[in-house]
């Protein structure tokens, strides 16, 4: 007899794979080491996955919790499996390799957390960890995430509109921009302790949006993904998600939001102004100086032969935001 539950979650292939099975596979990978980088230096080359002979990933695992939220049911895009979205990350505070954050962030402590919202506002507030989950109605939003490195994922985030938070603090009319700042805690973040681990970035990581971008309904503060609270490698406990901009705009582990009248500095723009602008809107017509942005590799399931290379869409396909940039030369303001 087959029972079908009305609200049963659609099981994806990765959810069916028994955890012990993929752990075994990972063990095998680890034992093989990494001929390329591993033989000369313990590298954090873009992608050094299974090269870690000396540490094992099975002791401490950051505990996430299930969230209560309204599900998004009208999206049919093929999602990135949760274990890829949580093990292939750019979060230089935990190392520059894509698999560094999942390895180095598991002991990250988010309790207590304090997110302060201030600057040019009527009512500055500070949210603690629990407030992040309880102050606003949580909703799921399935967004495409396009990395400036020309790969992309489809991720079910959970969170709330940044606009709801901003309305609560009541921005002054003089507020033109919103500045964001990641936690600065070298004790917990090896990339902030050591320039070689952190890729030579000046920490804390900072980002910014124009106020109309921040108020747009698509812009969200995310506190969870795939049904649970965020794991640290994805920016626990609270991060920004701006789906029409390159991923580096979606700043992680935020402690401070400041409304200001000046365009705030942004980390990648400081590091390489000719490569990363303040706006960083996804735009297939404007190449990164060193690579093309016309197409992207969509990370879902399947091995080498199933890799999906697709056209990149202006504003990552979120056309509604085009009106925010009417009359602007997007080649100049990249």
């Amino acid at each position: 007899m087959i029972f079908k539950f009305k609200n049963a979650r659609q099981e994806t292939e990765n959810q069916v794979t028994d955890e012990s099975v993929y752990r075994q596979r990972r063990e095998l990978l680890k034992k093989m080491g990494y001929f390329g980088a591993g033989s000369l230096l313990a590298s954090s080359a873009a992608n050094a996955g299974p090269l870690d002979w000396f540490s094992s990933d099975d002791e401490v695992i950051f505990k996430t919790k299930a969230l209560t939220f309204s599900k998004q049911t009208d999206d049919t895009q093929k999602q990135t499996p949760v274990e890829k979205a949580t093990s292939y990350n750019n979060f230089f505070e935990f190392g520059t390799g894509k698999s560094d954050p999942v390895k180095n962030a598991q002991e990250f402590n988010v309790d207590p957390w304090s997110l302060s919202i201030g600057g040019l506002v009527e009512k500055p507030i500070t949210l603690g960890l629990d407030d992040l989950y309880s102050s606003f109605e949580l909703e799921e939003r399935i967004y495409r995430l396009r990395c400036v490195e020309a790969w992309s994922m489809v991720i079910p985030w959970i969170g709330f509109s940044l606009a709801s938070l901003l309305k609560k603090v009541q921005p002054l009319s003089s507020a033109k921009y919103v500045a964001f700042e990641t936690l600065y805690d070298p004790k917990q973040m090896p990339g902030q302790r050591n320039r070689f681990v952190g890729g030579g970035v000046d920490y804390p990581y900072v980002e910014g949006l124009r106020i109309d971008e921040a108020m747009h309904k698509l812009t969200m503060l995310s506190v969870g993904m795939y049904g649970n609270t965020l794991p640290p490698q994805n920016g626990a406990p609270v991060r920004l998600v701006v789906p029409w901009k390159y991923g580096f705009k979606s700043i992680k582990s935020i402690v401070k939001i400041t409304l200001t009248d000046k365009m705030p500095p942004t980390t990648w723009n400081i590091l390489a102004p000719n490569e990363y602008g303040f706006y960083a809107n996804v735009n297939p017509a404007v190449d990164h100086p060193r690579w093309s942005q016309a197409r992207e590799r969509r990370i879902t399931t399947g091995g080498l032969l199933a890799q999906n290379r697709i056209d990149t869409l202006p504003f990552n396909g979120y056309d509604d935001v085009a009106r925010l940039y009417k009359g602007m030369n997007l080649k100049k303001f990249y």
Partner: peptide, 26 residues
């Protein structure tokens, strides 16, 4: 082979590019 089996992390293409590039250099 691991790439074909989707066992090379998030982006098997990037993994193979890094592996072969750094391997050649080594």
């Amino acid at each position: 082979y691991l790439g074909l089996q989707d066992e090379l992390g998030g982006d098997p293409v990037q993994y193979l590019l890094d592996f072969t590039g750094i391997g050649a250099l080594n």
